[in-house]
Write a protein that binds this DNA or RNA. Structure first.
Length: 617
RNA sequence: GCCGACAUAGCUCAGUGGUCAGAGCGGCUGUUUUGUAAACAGCGGGUCGUGGGUUCAAAUCCCUCUGUCGGCUCCA
C-alpha cells in the first residue's frame, strides 16, 4: 500500500490519530467528556471537557507519551453498528453528555438540527440518521461514536505532534459552553511532518508583526488603542506607492476621485440598511445637541449621496468614483491581530453607478485591474469564489429572492466567461446587499488569503432611490458595483509583507537606495550628499548612512533593512564617478556591474516607474 | 466578547519569595577613518505592563484592569 501518497488514507490516519488522542485523554482523565474529533487541514483536533480540570500545554508531554503507548499496543480499529436507543444508553452509561446531546437531536429530529455542525463531523451521514442507526469504532477499551473510516490499527497512524490547546464553543455557538480543543498535526511520515514544521518556522520568521517592527513600517500604541496601527514614514511610503498603482490602473478606465467626511448622521445608515444589521459594531457619537452620529463603517452610502446630488442621464453612466479612505468598525477585541484585523481600516474603495446592462463590461474592467495589480505584486496564483446568499436563510439579506437569483446568475456568467469552471461557490458568503466575486491569492509559502472583491448591489440603489433618465425619458433604477482591489490595505499589507518577507520590489520599497560613506571626510560627505540630491530629483527614495561605523557594519544594517540597492561611496567612486551597487540577493542581476552614477540613478528611477521588478517569489 | 497562555531596558531574553534587578544587540560619548553582512573602550537606560491584596519580605504568590499571542464566535 502506498500510504504516503493516498490522501484518503492520510485522512484516515489523521482521524485515527484523533481517536488515539481521545483514548489517551480518557486514560489520563477517565471523567473527561468528549465533544467531536474531526480531521482538519494538516491534522486533527479533539474537543474535550474535563470537570474541574484545565488541560494545559504542559500536559502535552504526558498525553503524547500515552498516545505512543496506545500506538505501541497495536490496537485494532473495529467498526460496529448500534441503534439510536443502544447508542443513547451507551452515552448515558459512559457519562458522555455531549454525545448524548447529539444522539438526542438525532432521535428527536431525525437529523442533527444544528446546521452549524456538519453531520459528517459528528460521524454519521444523513442516510444513517434516517435509518436511526449510527456507527461506532472501538480500539482497545476506547469506543467512540464515529463514521470512520480508520486505519487498520493504532500503529498505522504515521507521524503526529500536539500543537496547541484552545477554547472552542460546543457546536460552534457562542451561547454554548466552551470546551478545550486539542490540536495536533499529522502526516504519513516523519519527514513530511518535519517539512510542515519547517514551513511553520518560515511563516514565523516572516510574520508581518515581526517584520513590521524590524523594518519600521508600523507601530501600535497602548494609548491609541487596539487595532489602530500607526504608519511610520517608511510604511506610509510603501502603502502610498501601492495605492498609487491601484489608482493609476483605475484612472485608465475612467474613475474619478472623490472624498467624504468620516462621520455621518445615523439616518444615512438607516436608509442604506446598515443600521439594522450592524448598529452594534458602529463607533457611535452623540453631539452636544443630542443628535446621533456614527464613524463611517463603509463608504458606499456617502458615495450614493454624491450620485444622488443631481439628476443623471443614462448618457452619464457609468459614473465611477474611487476613494481610498478609512472606515471604522468596533470589532470584538479578541478578533484583532496585527494588521490582519483592525478597527481603523483603510479601503481602496470604488463604486460604479451603472445600468443593469452595463454590469458585465464594468466587472470585466475591474477584473483586469485586479489581475494587473496581483500579477505585478507577484501573486501569480489567484482563485475565485462566487459568494452568494443562502436561499434557506434569507433573513440576513435585503431584497427579493428572485432578484438575488438573477444577480447571482449575472456574476456567475461573468465568472464562467473568465475562468470557466475554475471557481467555487460560497453559499451564505454574500454581502447583505448583494452577491460578490471574491479573489483569493496564494502567497509564497502556499497559504491562501482573501484579497480583492467585486460586489453587485441592487439594494442600496433601491434604498436611496438612485436612478437615471433613460432613452424613453423614464426614471430607471440603476445598480451599483463595489470594488476594492487591495481590500483592506492593512490586511493586504499583512499578506504582502509575509509574501515578500519584507523584500519589496524597487518600485514600492520604502527605501530604494542607501548610500554608505566609507569615511567622514568632507569630500566624501559632500559627494554623498550630492548623490542623494540627484536621486531625490529623480523621485527616488534614497538615504545616506554617514555614521562613523565600519563599512561592513553599515552594509549589514542595509541588508537587514532589505534595501534593494546599497552603494558604497569612497575615494574610488569620487575619482571615477562609477558605482558597483550591491544588489539585494532576491533581485534580478543587473547586467552592468559598474555604471556611471548618473546613469545608474536614472536606471533605478526608470525601473521604479515601470514596476517591472516583480517580487521574485 | 469567550477559553487558555503570556507581559522584566528601544529589541531579544536571563532572573520564580530574601542584599542596591542582569546580559547581548541598539542608543549616546570617545578613540579609530574604515572598501561590501557586526572595530575598540566608556556611559547612560528598567518604580519588573497597571491598580490592589497576601507576607517580616514580592519581578517572583492571589485578584483587577490594559495589552500581546493561540483558538472559538463574528466579519459590510
Amino acid at each position: 500500500m502506498s500510504a504516503t501518497t493516498d490522501t484518503d488514507y492520510l485522512h484516515s490516519m489523521r482521524h485515527s490519530s484523533a481517536h488515539i488522542l481521545a483514548t489517551a485523554v480518557m486514560r489520563l482523565w477517565p471523567e473527561a467528556r468528549l465533544g467531536v474529533g474531526p480531521v482538519v487541514e494538516n491534522g486533527f483536533y479533539y474537543d474535550i471537557d474535563i470537570p474541574g480540570v484545565t488541560v494545559s500545554e504542559d500536559d502535552f508531554e504526558a498525553i503524547e507519551a500515552e498516545m505512543k503507548k496506545v500506538i505501541a499496543e497495536k490496537q485494532e480499529f473495529i467498526k460496529s453498528t448500534k441503534s439510536i436507543a443502544e447508542a443513547l444508553s451507551w452515552s448515558k452509561n459512559n457519562k458522555q453528555v455531549y454525545k448524548e446531546e447529539l444522539l438526542n437531536d438525532l432521535k428527536r429530529a431525525g437529523t442533527t438540527v444544528a446546521k452549524d455542525l456538519d453531520p459528517e463531523t459528528l460521524g454519521m451521514s444523513s442516510e444513517e440518521s434516517r435509518v436511526s442507526e449510527v456507527t461506532f469504532y472501538t480500539n482497545g477499551d476506547f469506543t467512540d461514536l464515529c463514521r470512520g473510516p480508520h486505519v487498520e490499527s493504532t500503529d498505522k497512524v504515521g507521524a503526529f505532534k500536539l500543537m496547541r490547546i484552545a477554547g472552542a464553543y460546543w457546536r460552534g455557538k457562542d451561547t454554548n459552553p466552551q470546551m478545550q480543543r486539542l490540536y495536533g498535526v499529522a502526516f504519513a511520515t516523519e519527514k513530511e511532518l518535519r517539512i510542515y514544521l519547517e514551513m511553520l518556522e518560515e511563516a514565523r520568521k516572516r510574520d508581518h508583526r515581526k517584520l513590521g517592527a524590524e523594518l519600521d513600517l508600523f507601530v501600535f500604541s497602548d494609548l491609541v488603542g487596539q487595532g489602530l496601527p500607526l504608519w511610520t514614514p517608511r510604511g506610509t511610503a510603501l502603502k502610498n506607492e501601492l495605492d498609487r498603482f491601484v489608482q493609476e490602473l483605475r484612472d485608465e478606465v475612467g474613475f474619478e476621485q472623490v472624498s467624504i467626511p468620516h462621520i455621518t448622521k445615523k439616518e444615512l445608515y438607516e436608509a442604506s440598511g446598515h443600521w439594522a444589521k450592524f448598529k452594534d459594531e458602529l463607533f457611535r457619537i452623540t453631539t452636544r445637541e443630542g443628535h446621533e452620529f456614527a464613524m463611517k463603517p463603509m463608504n458606499c452610502p456617502h458615495h450614493t449621496q454624491i450620485y444622488a446630488s443631481q439628476p443623471r442621464s443614462y448618457r452619464d453612466l457609468p459614473i465611477r468614483y474611487r476613494d481610498t479612505t478609512m472606515v471604522y468598525r468596533d470589532e470584538q477585541s479578541g478578533e484583532l491581530g496585527g494588521l490582519s484585523r483592525v478597527r481603523g481600516i483603510t479601503q481602496d474603495d470604488a463604486h460604479i453607478f451603472c445600468r443593469t446592462g452595463q454590469v458585465q463590461q464594468e466587472v470585466l474592467k475591474l477584473w483586469d485591474i485586479i489581475e494587473a495589480f496581483y500579477m505585478t505584486t507577484g501573486f501569480t496564483e489567484l482563485s475565485y469564489r462566487l459568494s452568494t446568499h443562502d436561499p434557506e436563510r434569507m433573513d440576513g439579506y435585503s431584497g427579493e429572492p428572485a432578484k438575488w437569483n438573477e444577480t447571482v446568475e449575472q456574476l456567475e456568467n461573468i465568472l464562467k466567461s473568465k475562468v470557466d469552471t475554475n471557481y467555487y461557490v460560497g453559499v451564505g458568503e454574500a454581502a447583505f446587499y448583494g452577491p460578490k466575486i471574491d479573489f483569493m491569492a496564494k502567497d509564497a509559502i502556499g497559504r491562501e488569503h482573501q484579497v480583492a472583491t467585486i460586489q453587485l448591489d441592487f439594494n442600496q440603489p433601491e434604498g436611496f432611490k438612485l436612478s437615471c433618465t433613460n432613452e424613453q425619458g423614464e426614471e430607471e433604477r440603476i445598480v451599483m458595483l463595489h470594488c476594492a482591489v487591495m481590500g483592506s490595505q492593512e490586511r493586504f499589507l499583512s499578506v504582502y509583507i509575509e509574501h515578500t518577507a519584507g523584500k519589496f520590489p524597487v518600485w514600492c520599497a520604502p527605501e530604494q537606495i542607501r548610500l554608505l560613506s566609507v569615511n567622514q571626510e568632507d569630500t566624501t560627505l559632500y559627494f554623498v550628499e550630492s548623490l542623494r540630491q540627484q536621486g531625490k530629483k529623480l523621485g527616488l527614495r534614497i538615504t545616506a548612512d554617514n555614521s562613523n561605523e565600519s563599512v561592513g557594519k553599515k552594509i549589514r544594517a542595509s541588508e537587514m533593512s532589505k534595501v534593494p540597492y546599497t552603494i558604497v561611496v569612497g575615494e574610488k567612486e569620487i575619482a571615477t564617478s562609477e558605482v558597483t551597487p550591491r544588489i539585494r540577493s532576491d533581485m534580478q542581476v543587473q547586467e552592468a556591474v559598474a555604471m556611471k552614477i548618473e546613469n545608474f540613478l536614472k536606471s533605478v528611477a526608470n525601473e521604479a516607474a515601470s514596476r517591472t521588478t516583480h517580487s521574485s517569489m
